[in-house]
Structure formats: structure tokens, C-alpha cells
Design a protein around this nucleic acid. Structure first.
Lengths: 253, 253
DNA sequence: CGAAGCGTTGCGAAGGGTGCAACAGTCATT
DNA sequence: AATGACTGTTGCACCCTTCGCAACGCTTCG
């Protein structure tokens, strides 16, 4: 809606592919060099773009800072974390927390067995949206037209023989998930990894996040993992209650 | 230099502090609501800003994606990683890789003992620039006036009794580091953690990155850690040679 | 030494952004 | 139920800001 800002922001994904010099940026934006220069300068002043010694531009450090601060301000994450850590204490496996946002599913927290360290390692990476248990939970709750439209637009990469093959199968799976209130990924992403997940709901009943427990089948069989489902659901429900129950006022001064 | 873009980008750090509604954004920008609305819309279309259910705006998911892609495109990181992993195989401790950018020191890779997983957990977080071994290495190589100016502007938080107390002590430490070509952090950040690091240099001899090995002193004493210095320096030198030696052409098609 | 490539600057023109005012919802109050 | 206050939204006219151009300085080639 704002041409100048639109052009400036278009530079970011362009630079995400790798450093580029002024001419390249101007070309790919379809604007004059002087225009590109001014946009890049503004981005530079805000730290979103960095100029390396060969004068080429690449994405800047402030971007990390912003992403970091952003993830820390997600209140679901803040509320959920202690519960995820507690569950991890008991069962030991890797636990993920994820949210849905505009066509993408995004890990926002992860608790690794015996390492209670927050890892953002997968943040921003394209989640295997067609097979991940958390993705199924989040998409299953979308309004029907949106869900259908999204399913149609997705690719269905055959990670393994057990991956979701196409939109029809995916929609059917989502219906099942919505019905039963939990989801699995049994070797759909990596042959030897199984997951089981449950939804976290807000006060209005909508799914605001999803959590899952993952484990390689050399450690526990799929059946053993499924036997943890009650604990997973209980944790998810606890988080749901806390999230929707008391008003989590985060008003700043 | 570009007013519109400047205003739009100013919204990002503002939202990093927490969600805000249209009026708040307009006020803090000093512009009319309608203007703020159009800027936010443009940011929204690019995924940098997300509108939550209560209509308030917060930072969006694309930000994570950009930060992620950016860090993957740092060629120093790409070249260094296998060497860091190899060193980690031998000595087992945590290894960091960091760069300097416009007044900030930034971790861009980390190899954890027995977990050869890339963790970006600390990316974007303010590094303890006055005490970290990698920070000393990077700042020690700055041109004198810049180094002096930066040292004067920094805060010197007393994390521990062994933390760098003030600018004078810091500059003296940096001189030592530049002299000897390596750096340590002996309990300056956390009482029980020691680090030893070495610089990675480009073809022109300038320090382009720094690496360090960290270990708690319950595992190895400071002396034992220092005994690893030759290995650390050898690894750093190997990376330096590879980085500056052959032309690492990363031209895309 | 000249040519070609890059980034940079100042300028006039016009396109786009700005603020205003009015509208449409929602919520709380009376 | 009606009123008011509050939000987010829209259309519009004015004028500021941005745009592309052309020329410049600079380095790097041939």
C-alpha cells in the first residue's frame, strides 16, 4: 500500500538469498540505482542491512535482535515453557511448541531431553507442514475455506513412504485430528522419528498453539510413545487453562 | 534518508517491546493514525508484522525466516563450521564463533559438546561484550579511534568480581590481546566458566571472526583449558587460511 | 593512457504520501 | 435501549517527498 516502503522491504528477502551490490539490487527491484541507494541507506541506518568490506550489502545484525525480542514476547510461549520443562523432566523426550501464522507453522520453543536449553535452531525454517503433528493440530482448527485453500496450495514432499501424499489425504487427516483432539506423525518426516501432539486452546476454544513429543523409535516404539498421550494432553490442557483463565496482563508502563 | 521508510522501520523496534495498537503506534511515531495504518499494512504484507486477534500488532514470523536465512549465508560460518565440529570432536567442550558488526558482537555458530547441533539460541542476545573472549579478539583489531570510542560508550556490568571494571582496564586488556594474538575470559561472565579464544583473519590480516572454547571449571581447570590453546589457535589459523586462500566463489546462477 | 565499471550527488518534475474529516463498528455507561 | 467514547477505516485535496536523470569521482581493467 505504500510504494516506497514496499520497495524497501522487498530488498530484505532479496538479500536473504545472499549478498548483492547496488546494481543488482536496483535491477531486481526495477528501480534506478539512486533510488536503490537511498532505500539501502535507510535500511542500513536501522541496522537491517549491513555493508561488508567489498561494498556489497547483506542482512544486518539488528534483524537477529528483533527476531529474538519478538519470540520472547509471545506470551503463550512464556506461559507454556515451565509446563513443557516439567513434562520433559518426567518423560525425557524432545518437546516442541508451535504456532500458526499466515500460512506458516513456526516452532517457538523446544525442550531437549537432558538439555533444558531453549533452542531456536529451527525457528524460521520451513516446518514440514504436511506431516508434523503440531502442524496438523494447528491447521485442523482453521476455518474450513481457509483450510481448504491452504491445503490446495501446499506441496506434499515425499519425505518418507509414510508422508502425507496429497491434499485430499491431508484434509482427511485434518478431519480426523479435529475429531479426536490430538495428532501424530509416525515416521512421516523422518523414517525413524515418531511424534504425538495435542492442541492448546484460548478462552474462545480456538487453537492458539500446539505441542508435541518426539522420539526416535530406537528408543521407544510408536505404541510406547502413544501411551504418553494422556500426559501430553493433560499438559496441553493445563497450559490452555492458564492461558485463557487469568488475565495475563502484560501492559508496559 | 527516506522519510517514509524511516518511519515504517521505526515501528519494528517499537513493537519489539511488546504488542501495540494503532493509536499507540501513531502516537509514538508522531504521525496521524491513517499514516500509521498504511505503514503497518505494508509491513504486514511483507510478513514483518502480525495482527493478533485483539487487533494489536506485533512482530511477524517472516522476521525469523529472514534472520535464519541471513545467518546461513555468512560464508565465514560455512567455512568454519566443519573445523569447529572437528575440534569439538577432539576436546568435547562448547565452541563459539562470533563476528563484530557496528558496535555489536554476535554469535553466529555454536557447537555443543556431544550435541553437534547448530544452536542459534544466543543470536541477537546482547553478548557480554566487555568480558567475552571472542569480543576482546574482535574489538582488539578495530582501528584505534573506533576502538577507543566504542570502549568509552560501553557499560561495564560487574557480572562477577573478575569482570572488566571500566574502559581503561578494557583498553589495556585489548592491547594485551592484540599483542599476544589470543584471549581468555576467566570467570568474567559467570564465576565458574572459563573461555579461551583465537582470531580468524582474512586475506588482508584483519580479524573477520573469532572462536572460543568454553568449559566450566568443575570439568577442567583454567590451566587445563589454557593447555588447549595451541589446538584452538591451530584451528583458527586453518580456518583463516581456507577463508582467505582459495577464492570461495559463491556466485549464484 | 583511455575505457568501462562501480557508487555517489544535485536537481527539477510529478508521483505518492500525508493529515484531515467523516464513517463504521464495538464496548461501557446511563 | 439509547448515548457517548473509543477504536479502526476510508476518500480526498494539498503539498512534501521521492523518483529518474545526468554528471561526477573513483577504481580497475585493457
Amino acid at each position: 500500500m505504500s510504494q516506497t516502503v514496499d520497495r524497501a522491504l522487498s530488498i530484505l528477502p532479496l538479500l536473504a538469498q545472499g549478498p548483492a551490490d547496488l546494481g543488482q539490487v536496483a535491477d531486481r527491484l526495477g528501480v534506478h540505482k539512486s533510488t536503490a541507494l537511498r532505500l539501502l541507506r535507510t535500511l542500513h541506518e536501522h541496522g537491517l542491512v549491513y555493508r561488508q568490506q567489498d561494498q556489497r550489502y547483506r542482512l544486518g545484525a539488528r534483524l537477529f535482535a528483533l527476531a529474538q525480542e519478538a519470540v520472547e514476547n509471545l506470551d503463550i510461549r512464556e506461559i507454556a515453557h515451565p509446563h513443557l520443562a516439567a513434562l520433559n523432566e518426567r518423560i525425557g523426550h524432545t518437546i516442541h511448541l508451535a504456532v500458526y501464522e499466515e500460512g506458516e507453522v513456526l516452532y517457538i520453543d523446544k525442550v531437549e531431553s537432558r538439555y533444558p536449553v531453549r533452542m531456536y535452531s529451527r525457528i524460521g525454517k520451513p516446518v514440514a507442514i504436511t506431516v508434523a503433528a503440531v502442524a496438523k493440530l494447528l491447521l485442523a482448527d482453521l476455518p474450513e475455506p481457509e483450510r481448504r485453500a491452504l491445503a490446495g496450495k501446499l506441496d506434499y514432499p515425499p519425505y518418507t513412504p509414510r508422508s502425507t501424499p496429497n491434499a485430499a489425504a491431508f484434509l482427511k487427516e485434518l478431519a480426523t485430528v479435529r475429531e479426536q483432539g490430538w495428532a501424530t506423525d509416525l515416521g512421516g518426516h523422518e523414517e525413524s522419528i515418531n511424534c504425538v501432539g495435542a492442541p492448546i486452546r484460548g478462552a474462545d476454544g480456538r487453537v492458539v498453539a500446539a505441542m508435541s513429543v518426539s522420539a526416535p523409535n530406537v528408543v521407544v516404539t510408536a505404541e510406547e510413545l502413544l501411551s504418553l498421550l494422556p500426559q501430553v494432553r493433560r499438559t496441553a490442557d493445563t497450559i490452555s487453562r492458564e492461558y485463557s483463565g487469568t488475565s495475563p496482563n502484560k501492559d508496559s508502563a
